[in-house]
Each structure stands twice: as structure tokens, then as C-alpha cells.
Amino acid sequence: MTISDFYQTPILREGARAGDIVRTRPVFAPQLTGAAGAWQIVYVSTDSRSQPIAASAIVLIPETVPEPGTGAILLYCPPFRGLGGQCAPSQLLATGAEYDIVGIEAALARGWVVAIPDGQGLGAGTGPHTFLAARAAGAKPVLDLARAIYRASDLDLPVAPVVAWGYADGGRIAAVAGELQPWYAPEVDLRGVAAGAVASDLAILAPVIGRGAGAGLAFAGLIGLARAYEQLPLRHVLNEDGLVAAAEARHLTVVELLQRFPQPLAHWCREPDPWNDHWWRRVLALETLAHVKSDVPLHLYHGELDLIVPVRAGRRALIAYRQRGTKVDWREYDGDHRSTAHWALSDVLARLTEDIANGPVSPPTSAAADAEVRPGA
């Protein structure tokens, strides 16, 4: 089966459940010395309207055999890689093109299975990637990936405790997964979540990014949110040049986006502040963190010198979760966005290891009893 055949968006069978396996195949991850095996998988997830969609991921099997009681499945949510093209982690790792593998290798060295979702719109999805839409589109494929691993007979993996870890936009996705797990995937034995460089309130962060050196990220966020919230057509906010640029941007990597669109976001829009619109303000409000109390321990960390996601954005997330009653701790590093991601590795792994050892937060519910009813909070 060729790459294009494997990632061809499948027609899902009637009655398909979130987490059902569509197809799997073994691959080689040439950069990873700690992986005994790797599998690309296509599985069922759901979109913002709770409709079934195809999602893809890569599952890495560790060479190291964990000590009894220390094994786990790590749901690893990497930072934003791009809106399209060869941005899917399951493709990057299989071709040896992934540039950030230190955290993955460290988790494999502990004997953890590492599962990395591509994210809605990448891999088996129909793009563009739903960048910034952690709540509408990002977190469900993460939780459904844990379900898929439980059900994937080809992988021959025992059911194990689950922890989630992400950085930047991946951190927002991991944090939201912790909020959604009790009602969306109660059968998943989630023990803890680590999230670095996260922003609680996009309504504050997005305009700042749109005027700075990372303006291409704001443009990508506009496209990603419009993809997740289909009632928000880009034609309402983009000018003619912006519509042409958006058609190009949906196929680009993050590096290409930053190089191609350095102009302030307002350059591509009908109004100076495209976020100052009733519907867009509502979407940004929906995408804030800490809508509800997270049942699992949450570990937040941030770089004091971070110029991409200012540290004050992370502190707001800390306060918001504490106000909800979440068990959350905070670690601040004397570094920028990139250096903090690496300096925090050992601390993150140590905290998640403690969460695994502390046992289940609550008894996992059987999948059959999962009513998938969203709480009113």
C-alpha cells in the first residue's frame, strides 16, 4: 500500500464508533533509537458537530521494558507543524524528517508507548489543519487515539494507564483533553496531563500575535478556526488578497507560513481587527481553557522569556484552572520558547511518572456505558 493509499480518507462504515480502527501498518522510524516498532494507524474520531471523521496517528513501541507498575501510554501532542503538506507527525517520523524527537526518545526510554495524533485535517484528514481549535477539533482525536490503542489487535498492547503531554498549541490540546475525558472518553484511564507554553484566552493572545513577528501564525489560526467552526466563512473577514493567500496557506508548513506571510494580519483582512466580530469573539471564548474542573492532575510550565506565547498568558491559565478547583502546579523557566521546551523535559517526565504511580483518578467507565452527554458547565 502506498503512502497516498494509506492516508486516503476512508468512507466510514455505518455505526462506526469513535476509536474504532480503520487500518494499520508497520513502518520504520529511522530517527528513533528507542523504538522497537512503529505503526501508522487510521481510526475514527469526531468533529465539532460530533460527526464521525477519519483521523491518523503513529504509535511507537518502546525497546525498553518498563518496571512493573511504571508502564504507560503517552499521548504526545507536538507543537503546530503547519496547515497542510507533509506536516503530519506520522509521516514526518516515518520519513525521518521530524526535527523534535528528544521528548519522544525520553518517554520511550522509560518504557512508555508513545502515541502521536496527526490532528484533524492532517494525514488521513481533509485539510487544512484545525489550528487553535483545541476544544472543537483537537482534543477528541487525542482521546480517541487512546481508545484505538486499546482496541488495536495488531499492536498487541496491554491496556495501560494514559498520560498526555503537549507544548504550545499541543499543550492547549492536551489540557483540553484532560477537561473532556470524563464525559467524552470515561473508559480511558487518564492519570495526568502536562502542558507547556499554553494560552488560556485566545481573545487576548491572537491580536498580539497578529501584529508581531509571528503574524503568519495568526493568519494560520484564522484559517484553522474557520475550518473547525464551519459557520465562520473566511470571506466575511478576508479581503480579496487574503482569500488568495488563504488558498495557498492551507497547504504550507509552519516555516513556510512564517516566511510567506510576515505582514500584520490586518493586511489580509477587511477590517483592522478581524477578531473584533460577534461570531469570532464567540469562537475565541469557546476556545478558552478551564471551562470545567479537570479531574486529573495538571502540570503547567512556561518560559519567562517566551516571546511567542507570553508568560502572562500561561499564568492566566494557571489562575483559571485553580479557580475551577483543578489540582494544578506551575513551573517557570528562565528561558525562551524553544529552550524551555527542552529544559522542562526531565521535570515533565518525573511529574507524569508520579501521576502513573498514584493510580487511577477515578475508576474507568466501560465504553458501553459512555452516554457522551456534555456537562452543562
Results as ranks from 00 to 15, higher is better:
Trp330Asn: 01
Arg315Ala: 07
Val311Tyr: 08
Leu305Ile: 13
Cys269Trp: 04
Thr326Glu: 01
Leu307Cys: 14
Phe261Trp: 07
Ile308Tyr: 11
Gly314Trp: 01
Ala320Asp: 14
Arg315Tyr: 09
Pro310Tyr: 11
Glu271Val: 15
Asp329Glu: 11
Val292Met: 00
Val292Glu: 04
Leu318Thr: 06
Leu300Ser: 02
His337Val: 15
Ala266His: 10
Ala320Arg: 10
His278Val: 11
Asp295Gln: 12
Leu289Thr: 15
Glu332Gln: 11
Leu289Tyr: 07
Arg331Cys: 03
Leu300Tyr: 01
Ser294Ala: 13
His278Leu: 01
Ala290Phe: 00
Leu318Met: 10
Asp336Gln: 10
His291Tyr: 02
Ala320Gln: 08
Ala290His: 00
Ala320Val: 12
Glu287Leu: 00
Leu258Met: 15
Ala320Trp: 03
Leu307Met: 15
Leu298Asn: 09
Leu265Ala: 02
Asp273Thr: 14
Ile308Phe: 09
Leu300His: 04
Phe261Lys: 05
Glu304Leu: 15
Gln263Gly: 04
Val309Thr: 15
Gln263Ile: 06
Val283Glu: 00
Pro297Met: 03
Arg338Ile: 13
His291Met: 00
Arg324Ala: 10
Pro297His: 08
Tyr333Arg: 12
Arg316His: 06
Ala266Arg: 12
Glu256Lys: 11
Pro264Gln: 04
Val255Tyr: 09
Arg270Asp: 01
Lys293Ile: 02
